[in-house]
Design a protein around this nucleic acid. Structure first.
Lengths: 202, 202
DNA sequence: TGTACATCAGTGAACGCGCGTTCACTGATGTAC
DNA sequence: TGTACATCAGTGAACGCGCGTTCACTGATGTAC
């Protein structure tokens, strides 16, 4: 079918990952099998061990890439007029549009941080959110009495909850979620404004 | 080992479910196998088909029971002085104390409702929360401009997000979550109070 | 330019595993006469 | 009370499946002389 030349061009780690990602998107991350990936990428099952030392390593690579995609989506959202709310909505949208990637991401990726004392690393979704929270405090949109990490956590939890509920328990439920989601985020942010008595003690 | 009499007493559907539940708690719901349950309950693998027509049916039964346990925990919390906040905290506590049951519950149970027009059924966790929201509105703790279902959804999403994050991504992260969680819930509720401009339009 | 050798991506068969489910059967119990 | 039969919970072996991983190997490519 394929010429040797075509075949050689396709035989890259990148191609295998692309194929694997497509399979996750189509059949779910839980059902992904090395053998199926190998077949789809035109390898024998053992051939993939040239590129990955185990199925786990392949899955981790996929998971990390999903994280990068999410970061990218959030970074774009952070450029708008209402960054905090938009980041939250973008988070939800990403989960709904890429359900399998979202689940892959959160089923495998544990936070590398183990406490508030450790620094937040780089360009990950949480770091991005945290940065915007600090900025919101600087321009007076959020009370400065609140620890930024706590605000970020609350906001993250809210949108994460919306995302996971709508992917699992509420899949099949029809409603105008878009406006409700926006409303919920706004409500939380209003509860964190200066003037409203501080619920979170630092 | 066991006398015939003892053996007969143990051979009930109830006993099988107890054994199965224990195995879920210990080894996770994803790894539960019929054969392992049969072995632990002193049956041959095929013997369980006397009680359940398939593994799926057994899992569904387990899942429904987890839901009942959660409902019970929330109902108790609703009896306190600050029902909405306490229900939320109880939801989080249940998830952390019974992680496998919580995941079993949400990996299998889809909402039977498919839209706001359908009635909320019985004693499930969401119905319980909704009832308390209505009561909070009646006593003026929440703006009556807000649709109760939307408030319930927002609150549920927040605590569900906290629960799932702490079970997955933030397992291993050490912090004083208890006070932060309480603060996050309080903040959301404050954003929904009368007087604060309504974020959710009905 | 030709030959001998080393490298190395990739193969194919096999290993050993556990799974859910089916089915012909057994053997104890209950029932009818 | 004893016998013949029906019921039925439960068994054990087998089916057919797919999985991740290992390993001796091949055959094309690159390198050195």
């Amino acid at each position: 079918m394929k010429s040797p030349r075509e075949r050689r061009q396709l035989r890259t780690k990148e191609h295998i990952l692309t194929v694997a990602r497509d399979m996750v998107l189509q059949h779910g991350y839980a059902g992904l099998s090395l053998r199926a990936v190998a077949k789809a990428a035109d390898y024998s099952p053992s051939g993939l061990y040239e590129y990955f030392s185990s199925k786990d390593e392949l899955m981790d690579t996929l998971s990390r890439r999903s994280g990068d995609l999410l970061s990218e989506a959030l970074a774009q959202a952070a450029a708008g007029a209402d960054p905090l709310c938009d980041i939250g909505l973008a988070y939800i949208a990403f989960a709904l549009e890429n359900p399998e990637e979202f689940q892959l991401l959160f089923s495998r990726t544990r936070s590398k941080r183990e406490g508030l004392d450790e620094a937040v690393t780089g360009n990950n979704p949480y770091g991005l959110l945290l940065g915007q929270v600090v900025r919101a405090q600087e321009r007076g949109a959020l009370s400065t009495d609140l620890a930024p990490e706590m605000v970020s956590y609350a906001l993250w939890a809210l949108v994460h909850g919306i995302a996971t509920l709508r992917l699992s328990h509420l899949s099949g439920f029809r409603a105008d979620f878009e406006s409700v989601d926006r409303g919920a985020i706004t409500a939380l942010l209003q509860g964190l404004r200066p003037g409203v008595s501080n619920p979170i003690s630092p």
